[in-house]
Amino acid sequence: MKTPPIVTPEEWEAARLELLVKEKELTRARDAMAAQRRRMPWLAVEREYAFDGPAGRASLLDLFEGRRQLIVYRAFFDPGVDGWPDHPCRGCSMVADQVAHVAHLNARDTTLVFASRAPQADIRRVKERMGWTMPWYTLTDGFDADFGVDEWHGTNAFIRDGDRVFRTYFVNNRGDEALGSTWSYLDMTALGRQEEWEDSPEGHPQTPPYAWWNWHDSYGKDTAASETAEPAEDPQGSSGCGCR
């Protein structure tokens, strides 16, 4: 392999700062794209769908678990797919390995679930062995065909208004590969991260940046994080750690 030039510390820092300009441009371009997603039209879901879940039969509305938004990843853990019955396909397994703790999504009124054709007994067995904790349902009808995920993986986002459900976004192919973090999932939803710095339509729920962050085992138990967090001066350009 041909290696890059070997430089002095000053030259290395200059090269890093030159690259940083482009990296910030990319960050702001991602923010602009997410803002455009929040302005996507909504498509009403008129058909009723049924899933098998850990607690038995469930509707699409049930998958929300009472929250306002729902993200559904179609994972290929199906009879006849490579890996069956020991694993989902390799790509879907990598996606599952990358999923951050769902408590942070739940704190933004958003539920993430996986859906496959595998029976619940097989899903439970594989989840336990692989250490996956996200809700995982069994497809029982034409949901996958209706939402573009019958032959290839993909991620659909939904929102509900009372009992009415709307499709708000869809991504597949390489668009899926960056998913897994709390931020990447929220950025594909109709409500986004719900922080004040975001360019969102009027009336969208928004709170100060970082004020809602908490340890994943502390949401709903205390308000220490929201009481002590300090909003960052530049959420788009800082890490947002808040460590002092």
Rank of each mutant, 00 (worst) to 15 (best):
L139A: 05
D122E: 15
D150T: 03
V126A: 10
D141G: 08
W136V: 05
T138P: 03
T138C: 14
W132N: 04
I159S: 09
T133H: 12
V149E: 00
G154K: 01
G154A: 06
A145S: 11
N156L: 13
F158D: 01
E151R: 13
G148D: 09
W152T: 10
Y137H: 13
I123E: 05
F158H: 07
P119I: 02
G142E: 09
W152E: 12
P135A: 06
W136Y: 15
K127F: 01
F114I: 04
G148V: 00
W136M: 05
W136I: 04
G142D: 10
W152C: 08
R124H: 15
M134S: 05
Y137R: 05
R124N: 13
D141E: 04
M134I: 10
R124W: 10
K127P: 01
F158K: 03
A115P: 00
R160A: 10
V113A: 05
F147S: 04
A145D: 11
V126K: 03
R125P: 02
D122W: 08
I159N: 01
T138M: 11
F114Q: 06
D122V: 10
W132V: 04
R160P: 09
G131Q: 07
T133V: 12
D150R: 10
G148K: 09
E128H: 12
F147V: 07
E151K: 10
V113F: 02
A115M: 14
P135I: 00
A145H: 08
W136E: 02
A145I: 06
Q120C: 01
T133N: 10
R160T: 10
L139R: 02
R129S: 12
